[in-house]
Design a binder for these strands. Structure first.
Length: 316
DNA sequence: AATACTTCCAACCGCTGCAAT
DNA sequence: CATTGCAGCGGTTGGAAGTAT
């Protein structure tokens, strides 16, 4: 068994001898502590964090030092409020990555996972909640009409040929957001079955209003030609989600077409992409068959270049 | 001015993954 | 193969600061 985390606990060679107890500090960092850590890091660089804490003369655990450095002291940190562009990026990446804050942060230079997480939980989540509550979910049981499902990110439409029974099994603790799931499943079904209609107005809309991030940009439509995103099957694709996450949803949605498309989709993934498999226990939302592909930064920036509120240009 | 309430964010906590032994 | 220790991650919390009454 692992020893319990010593962070924040008394360090002592003998629990009966209080004279040897060195109390580790907790709570807010003083300017003096910041100074010590900053100087140590700048002159010695990052090493073992418990050594950093000791050598810098800080009565903090290494974990605490690491967090302070990463979230506050790092020289490359961008301070201040998030710009609208950054906000859009966060929303976009969250729709693709879910609560993988560190991965989102890696795509936003100068921002930390903690910062983004806080921003999401305090600001964006609230806004999305408001926008979704202002919309009226369609509760009709029609087998012909596309189904609409309300999520924290707004109202989503499901093609009529796809079952939505797995939605009730959705695990809120999953690192994949419901919106991410829908984006992926919709994208896959679209790739496979051009007969499935989805009007532009019914398209996935993260705001539940008029801002749509998912109309296919020219740049992404073109990508299919180089084998990265599966073939262009000759349809007017209104929705095309890049393979940041490749989800095998066929079993759960009960769509043979999706099953086939998923194979095509998987095969067409860029071989250089790192793909990891998250183990699970049979519940889809707990990770079974969930495969996550990662992009490099350039790929992601190419992906976000179509966001309407942004003015991103890739420099060759 | 005083109090209650809300928001925001820095830091903590518990957990997992991984490498070393 | 089991154990250990560390790094890193995401969820949660405590409290300072701001706002409303």
């Amino acid at each position: 068994m692992r020893k319990p985390d010593q962070c924040g606990k008394n360090i002592s060679n003998s629990s009966s001898s209080s004279s040897h107890v060195m109390k580790l500090r907790k709570g807010l960092w003083s300017p003096e502590e910041d100074d010590k850590l900053m100087h140590y890091m700048l002159s010695n660089g990052q090493g073992c964090w418990s050594d950093v804490a000791r050598n810098a003369g800080l009565q903090r655990c290494g974990k605490s030092c690491r967090l302070r450095w990463i979230n506050y002291l790092r020289p490359d940190l961008k301070r201040g409020a998030f710009s609208p562009q950054e906000e859009d990026l966060i929303i976009h990446f969250h729709s693709l990555l879910g609560n993988r804050w560190s991965q989102i942060a890696a795509r936003l230079p100068g921002r930390t996972d903690n910062e983004i997480k806080n921003f999401w939980n305090s600001t964006i989540k609230k806004r999305l909640k408001n926008s979704s509550s202002s919309s009226t979910p369609n509760t009709s049981d029609s087998s012909i009409e596309p189904k609409e499902i309300s999520t924290t990110a707004g109202i989503f439409s499901i093609p009529p040929h796809c079952s939505t029974t797995t939605m009730s099994n959705m695990d809120s603790s999953s690192t994949l957001s419901p919106s991410s799931f829908f984006l992926q499943s919709m994208g896959l079904s679209y790739i496979v079955d051009p007969k499935m209609p989805m009007s532009a107005g019914n398209g996935i809309n993260l705001w539940g209003t008029t801002r749509s991030y998912l109309n296919v940009p020219q740049s992404l439509q073109g990508i299919s030609g180089n084998g990265n995103f599966g073939g262009n099957i000759g349809m007017d694709c209104e929705l095309h989600v890049p393979p940041l996450e490749n989800i095998n949803i066929a079993e759960n949605l009960g769509c043979d077409e999706v099953n086939k498309s998923n194979a095509i989709y998987s095969n067409s993934l860029n071989n250089s992409s790192k793909v990891e498999t998250i183990g699970g226990n049979g519940n889809y939302w707990e990770g079974d068959e969930l495969r996550v592909g990662e992009w490099d930064f350039e790929e992601l920036m190419r992906d976000v270049s179509f966001l309407p509120a942004l003015d991103f240009h890739l420099i060759d």
